[in-house]
């Protein structure tokens, strides 16, 4: 009898534990967009499938600043229901494929809520930078 009474409570606790007490994000945006993203054909290397679920790269778009610097924006999506901490770092390369020394190249720690879509961006350190690479690291 006692076990029967405790069963729903145990189920509720188990659900909370499994869900990690996570709250997810609802959002709304204009359906007919005026701005058009210039999407970049990307090449991905996934070595951490778990991170890829939590911080999934949806797409990459780029634009030039008024001063002629390349700017890239990466859309991330948390496919799970729990908040996740991660770290990211952009690397920049010149037209010869050589990495450009960047004073602000330190990893940036960030977080993404469950089911949230988030943008991260970076700007090329100089006009000679043509290519980039984004590195994502799990911070849990």
């Amino acid at each position: 009898m006692k076990i029967k009474n405790l069963f729903p409570v145990a189920c509720a606790v188990a659900t909370l534990v499994v869900a990690g007490c996570g709250t997810t994000v609802n959002s709304v945006e204009n359906a007919q967009k005026d701005g058009q993203r210039t999407m970049v054909t990307d090449q991905r290397v996934v070595t951490d499938p778990s991170l890829n679920r939590h911080v999934n790269v949806v797409g990459v778009n780029s634009a030039m600043t008024p001063g002629g610097l390349l700017r890239v924006q990466v859309e991330l999506l948390n496919r799970t229901r729990s908040i996740h901490h991660f770290s990211y770092k952009f690397e920049w390369f010149d037209m010869n494929g050589m990495q450009v020394n960047n004073v602000i190249s330190a990893s940036i720690t960030d977080q993404i809520e469950g089911k949230e879509s988030k943008m991260i961006s970076s700007i090329a350190p100089n006009p000679g930078c043509k290519d980039f690479r984004l590195k994502l690291i799990d911070a849990e």
Partner: peptide
């Protein structure tokens, strides 16, 4: 130290994107 890096990164991205220096 990573807090300074984070703040500087944000400021530089924002400042250079604004085009005000041009």
């Amino acid at each position: 130290i990573q807090d300074y890096a984070n703040a500087a990164n944000n400021a530089v991205n924002d400042l250079l994107t604004s085009g005000v220096l041009d």
